[in-house]
């Protein structure tokens, strides 16, 4: 039983990076912008956050630095694709490649660095409950923040006027423009917020999850987050489900391996991808539902004077 609680705890931890990044990308995409630069943004944020913690010893400064780095890169991307109407896919890819190289270059001095020692987090009282305490209440605050973030995004997108405006910009920027909304600024804001969240995810990776810096350490999580938003048909709750599912099956396959279960290792390493795709494809199998949720102008440039 205790092993199950530990598995659940590890799942929450493993899903968090993907969840934050994918929720950020979801905000982008709801505004009609696809940012393929997620991997590069996460890497730059990972080194920015790591370096900040090395110099200040404070995790929160690190998260701030990560979010800042993410927002900065995303704003460059935003100006390019929103005002200069460069191709979103090509620009995103360029950003990703740039981020991989630049983070490696900027991080050379930090490769051998070690973060100061920090206490483990635990919520008082609640963490003493047997099993449940171990499973849920001994996580880093960012893990809880992620759940709140998802709830907040649902509320924002579907219960507030600003959320409606954001979605209208992603559905039909021409109509939103005709109604007098500043489409380009709204899109930029969405891109910057999305970038900042990818930044938080990157920082979580280098500060909390794998507390070290080595180049390329994001190891494809940015691309998985991008795929997750699509498979979750742009619904925040499903993004969260998909992220935890992916994290959970990843941890489960390692747990099975360590128990000597005789399944081929190649099959096991496929499992997180297969399980996430199958589950999300099943719950999103209604085509009408996809049409409703997919931002109609996703990836398309907007020319206000056309």
């Amino acid at each position: 039983m205790n092993e199950f609680a530990l598995l659940l705890a590890a799942t929450l931890n493993a899903g968090t990076v993907l969840a934050i990044a994918a929720l950020g990308l979801l905000i982008n995409e709801k505004a009609g912008i696809v940012n393929l630069g997620a991997e590069g943004i996460m890497l730059c944020a990972a080194i920015a956050g790591f370096a900040a913690v090395v110099h200040t010893g404070n995790d929160w400064v690190g998260f701030l630095a990560g979010a800042g780095a993410g927002a900065l890169l995303a704003s460059i991307f935003g100006v390019l694709v929103i005002w200069l109407n460069t191709n979103q896919y090509a620009t995103g890819l360029a950003l990703s490649l740039f981020g991989v190289g630049f983070s490696a270059f900027a991080g050379v001095k930090y490769v051998q660095e070690k973060l100061p020692e920090r206490p483990n987090f635990a919520i008082p009282l609640l963490s003493d409950i047997p099993l449940v305490g171990t499973a849920i209440f001994k996580q880093h605050p960012i893990v809880y923040f992620t759940v709140l973030l998802a709830v907040g995004i649902v509320w924002f997108l579907y219960r507030t006027r600003s959320g409606l405006v954001l979605r209208s910009v992603g559905e039909s920027p021409e109509s939103a423009h005709a109604l007098g909304y500043p489409v380009r600024r709204i899109r930029l804001l969405a891109v910057v917020v999305g970038g900042a969240l990818c930044g938080v995810a990157g920082a979580y990776l280098s500060i909390i999850y794998t507390p070290l810096w080595v180049e390329g350490m994001v190891a494809g999580k940015g691309w998985i987050a991008l795929a997750l938003t699509t498979f979750a048909t742009w619904r925040p709750a499903r993004v969260l489900l998909g992220a935890y599912l992916f994290g959970g099956v990843t941890m489960l396959q390692f747990a099975l391996q360590s128990r000597g279960v005789e399944i081929s290792e190649q099959l096991l390493s496929m499992l997180p991808y297969v399980a996430t795709i199958v589950v999300l494809a099943l719950i999103s199998r209604n085509p009408a539902w996809i049409r409703v949720n997919m931002p109609a102008s996703l990836g398309r440039p907007f020319y206000p004077n056309a």
Binding site: T210, V214, G216, M217, M251, A255, Q257, S258, E265
Partner: peptide, 19 residues
């Protein structure tokens, strides 16, 4: 399944310790 993938190595180590 890889020589170098820090997040995956972390997850594998966590699973071993949990076990």
């Amino acid at each position: 399944g890889e020589w170098f993938n820090p997040p995956k190595e972390t997850e594998a180590a966590t699973a071993l310790i949990n076990g």
